[in-house]
Amino acid sequence: MSFFETPWGLLVIGFAASSFWRAAGAVLSGRIEIDTPLFDWCVCVTQALVGGLMVRAILLPSTALAEVPLGDRVLACAIGVSVFLLMRWRVMPGVAAGTASLVALIVWRGV
């Protein structure tokens, strides 16, 4: 068995695979200045990508969150977003309200 077939060898491969794109992004970013349309576009692409992942993590989770009914997850997020908007775009109250609502819904349903 070669080193790369052991768990530690696979970790070296995992590290290389994960770091490759980070390093490529860092190298390519050397050609980009902030407050330019190209930079704005890069931020937009990342915003869409990360935003999509986050929405998916709520609506179609691969974690234990999937045990919670979809309606409860959506309702808790709607409460969180409503509080966020009512409190003039303050993030912490929105997150606290959303998370607390989900705790209450889970306890209420006995999931």
């Binding site: 491969i13 995992g14 290389a16 695979a17 994960s18 490759f20 794109w21 980070r22 390093a23 490529a24 992004g25 860092a26 390519l28 970013s29 050397g30 980009i32 200045e33 902030i34 930079f39 890069c42 931020v43 692409v45 990342t46 990508l49 990360v50 992942l53």
Partner: peptide
């Protein structure tokens, strides 16, 4: 290697837009 490279691609735009 191939699987993790494909999954890790999402790190590129993040790094590209954060480093500047």
């Amino acid at each position: 290697l191939v699987t993790l490279l494909a999954i890790g691609f999402r790190n590129l735009p993040m790094s590209l837009s954060a480093i500047p």
